[in-house]
């Protein structure tokens, strides 16, 4: 079991960065401050958690949490088959945190996805542009204040008429 040791290590090394450690359904969750995510991630990576399974984000608008946004890292150790969840909190007025692309290449596309859907930017990312939505899309659809039906993006295309002679058809 690697995990308990590393968690104590994190708590010792970065006491002010670790906001809380919780458990739910057998999963360990570590809550940290967003701007220090690289230090913590690096410590995990160097201690056996070699695989970044997933990065995602949560908009805590109505859920409540330390800050408005949480970027969630799911790490896995191929050695001991343990998993851990790291939640890095970023504030609403400055949604920015360092990019993990330098540690794992897989962060590249996933951070772009978070940037696109949540509007959280990543410092040091090589190519931070929209990935899912068109480049001219406005807003960030997975934020809780974005309506599910969108803001008329889906109705905004030219209508093509039947037939060759389009003027006559109208």
């Amino acid at each position: 079991m690697l995990l308990p040791k590393i968690i104590t290590k994190v708590q010792d090394k970065f006491p002010s960065v670790t906001l809380d450690t919780t458990q739910f359904a057998g999963e360990d969750i570590i809550h940290i401050q967003g701007s220090y995510n690289l230090d913590v991630l690096k410590l995990f990576r160097d201690n056996g958690f070699n695989f970044l399974a997933d990065i995602t984000a949560i908009d805590n608008l109505t859920l409540g949490g330390f800050e408005r946004f949480a970027v969630v890292y799911h790490l896995l150790s191929h050695e001991t088959a343990e998993r851990v969840t790291i939640k890095a909190y970023v504030p609403e007025d400055q949604p920015e945190l360092p990019s993990a692309e330098s540690l794992w290449k897989t962060a590249d596309w996933q951070e772009r996805e978070i940037y696109d859907l949540f509007g959280i930017s990543f410092k040091g990312h090589p190519n931070l542009i929209r990935i899912m939505n068109p480049d001219d899309f406005q807003g960030h659809p997975l934020r809780k204040d974005y309506p599910r039906l969108g803001r008329k993006e889906r109705d905004d295309f030219p209508v093509v008429k039947r037939g060759i002679n389009k003027e006559a058809a109208q």
Partner: peptide, 15 residues
């Protein structure tokens, strides 16, 4: 898929 990014029927724009 009644969501922001799916066209609600292509017949809105092409015959």
């Amino acid at each position: 898929f009644d969501t922001y990014s799916v066209i609600q029927g292509v017949d809105k724009f092409i015959p």
